[in-house]
Write a protein that binds this DNA or RNA. Structure first.
Lengths: 248, 248
DNA sequence: CGCTGCGTTGAAATACATCAAAGAGTGTGG
DNA sequence: CCACACTCTTTGATGTATTTCAACGCAGCG
C-alpha cells in the first residue's frame, strides 16, 4: 500500500507545468517554453493530501497560492462563537489563497475534502518571476480576476430567499465547472457533506435533505448519497432563476 | 452654481497621486517620486459624478480599475428576471472593477450613489506600468488581495440566519471602514436607500426598517433618516457576533 | 452485533415575508 | 402659501418557508 502511494506521489512530483492537463486554466497559459521552465522552478508540487488536511490557516504561514490539480477543498473563516462560514469549494484548475497576498496573511482556512493534489507557489517567488516574465503577470491578473468573479456567485446565491433556488444555483454552478474540466456535467459526485453544503448556502442540514428529496420527487434529480444525477437540466435552470415569489 | 462646480472639478483634476489624501490606501503607496510621475500619467481623473451615473456596465467597455476618491458607489449584477443583486458598496480608498481584468470584461455594473469623484486606470496601461515599476506590481497585488478579502465579508454576513446580525455586521464594517479614512466611526451617513441596503443583505425593505426601529429602542442606535449614530458599540458588536440561536 | 457518524423524515415553533395602509419629506403648480 | 402628487419609509396584521426539536434509518466498522 505504501508502495502504491509512493509511485503515485512520484508521478505527481515528476509532472511539470508543461505536461499538466490544467495548463490552459492555470498560470502557464500562453507562456513559452523557456519561461515555462522558470515558472516550473517556483512551483512546488506536494504529495497527495487527504480529507481534513489543512493547506493554510487563517492568519498564519507564508502566503502562497495553491492550484488544485485533482480533488477538491473548501475555504472557510472562523466566526467569533467558534462556528464557521464556508466561503467556497474549489475544483481542479481553480486557485486558492488569493486573499493571502496582502501583508496580513491568509484570511481564511483551506481544508481538503477528499484525496487531493495541489501545486503550491510561494507568493514571493511568484511576484519575482512575474516581474520578469511579461506574459505571466498578465495571466496572473486574468486568473485573479476570474477567481474574483467566481466569488461573486456566492452572494448572488445567498441573496435568493427561496432555499430551493440556492441549491439549484449551486448545482448548476458545480455542473458547469465540472464540464469545464472535462467531466460529465450531469453526473455530480459531491465531495462535501450535507452539513458543509448547508453552511455554504446559509441553510440548515435538514433543509438541504428535504430539498434533495423534493427535487427528486419533482424528477429534476436522482440523488443517492453523495451522487447527484441531473435528470432535467431545464427544470433545474428554472428553479435557479425563479423569482423569490414564485412558488413550486 | 455652474461656476462653483467647475472650480471644484478643476481642483479635482489638478490633484496628482502625490497630493491625494488616499495615497497610503491606493496604488502610489511606497512608490518613489519619479515612478509616481509615471503612474500619474496613466491615472485619468474624472469630473465629479452624480447619483445614478454608471461607471461601467456588465460585460461592456474597456476594462478599467476605478479608485473612489470621494463619495460612494454600489456594484450589482442583473439576474435573469430583471431584478438585481447588490454586491458591494464602495467608499473612498477602495478599488472597483477588479472583476473586469479578465478577457470577458466587467461582470457587474458600478453605479454612483451620491456626488462622487473617482480615478480611472485603464487596465492595459496599468499592467504596462506595473511591469516596469517593481514596487507597483507588489502594491497592486496587495490591494487586489485586500479587496478580495473584503468581498469575503459579504457571504459571512449573508450566512447569518438572524437578520439583526446581518445588519449589525454591516454597520460595524461600515463604521470600521469610515474610521480608516478618518471619519467619526460612530456617526454614519448612509448613502444607500433602505431598498438598496435590503437587497445587499438579502432581506426586504420592511425588515430593515423594523430592525432600525428595534435597535433604536434597544438603545444601540439613534436613527434619523439616513443618519445613524452608534450609541452602544459593544451592544452592536454583540448583535453582530450573536450565534443564530440566541434570541434578542 | 452494537456502535457511531450521517442523512432522512415528521411535527411544531418562529422569524421573516407579504399584504395593506398610513406617515413624512420633497417638489410642482396653482 | 397651500394643495397635490410622488417617493421613501414606517408600522400593523397575517401568512408561510425554514428552523428547531425529535426520532428514526442506514451504511460503515470495530
Amino acid at each position: 500500500m505504501a508502495n502504491v502511494t509512493s509511485i503515485i506521489n512520484l508521478r505527481a512530483l515528476r509532472q511539470s507545468c508543461g505536461d499538466c492537463g490544467l495548463n490552459q486554466l492555470c498560470l502557464p497559459a500562453s507562456i513559452g517554453g523557456h519561461d515555462l521552465d522558470r515558472l516550473d522552478h517556483v512551483v512546488r508540487q506536494r504529495p497527495a493530501l487527504e480529507r481534513g488536511d489543512i493547506l493554510f490557516h487563517e492568519g498564519a504561514g507564508q502566503p502562497a497560492l495553491f492550484i488544485v490539480r485533482a480533488g477538491s477543498l473548501k475555504t472557510y473563516t472562523t466566526l467569533a462563537e467558534g462556528d464557521v462560514q464556508i466561503l467556497g469549494f474549489h475544483l481542479p484548475g481553480e486557485l486558492v489563497g488569493l486573499d493571502g497576498l496582502s501583508a496580513a496573511g491568509h484570511r481564511c482556512t483551506a481544508e481538503v475534502l477528499e484525496r487531493t493534489i495541489v501545486c503550491e507557489v510561494p507568493f514571493d517567488s511568484l511576484a519575482e518571476v512575474a516581474a520578469r516574465i511579461p506574459g505571466l503577470q498578465q495571466q496572473l491578473f486574468r486568473i485573479m480576476s476570474r477567481e474574483f468573479s467566481r466569488e461573486l456567485e456566492h452572494p448572488v446565491m445567498m441573496g435568493r430567499k427561496q432555499a430551493i433556488s440556492r441549491l439549484a444555483i449551486f448545482l448548476r454552478s458545480l455542473s458547469e465547472r465540472l464540464e469545464g474540466i472535462g467531466h460529465d456535467p450531469h453526473e455530480i459526485t459531491l465531495s462535501m457533506s450535507r452539513q458543509e453544503l448547508a453552511n455554504y448556502l446559509g441553510l440548515v442540514i435538514e433543509t438541504i435533505s428535504r430539498l434533495f428529496s423534493r427535487m427528486q420527487t419533482l424528477g429534476v434529480l436522482k440523488v443517492d448519497r453523495r451522487t447527484v444525477r441531473i435528470l432535467d437540466p431545464a427544470a433545474l435552470a428554472m428553479l435557479a432563476e425563479m423569482a423569490d415569489d414564485e412558488s413550486f
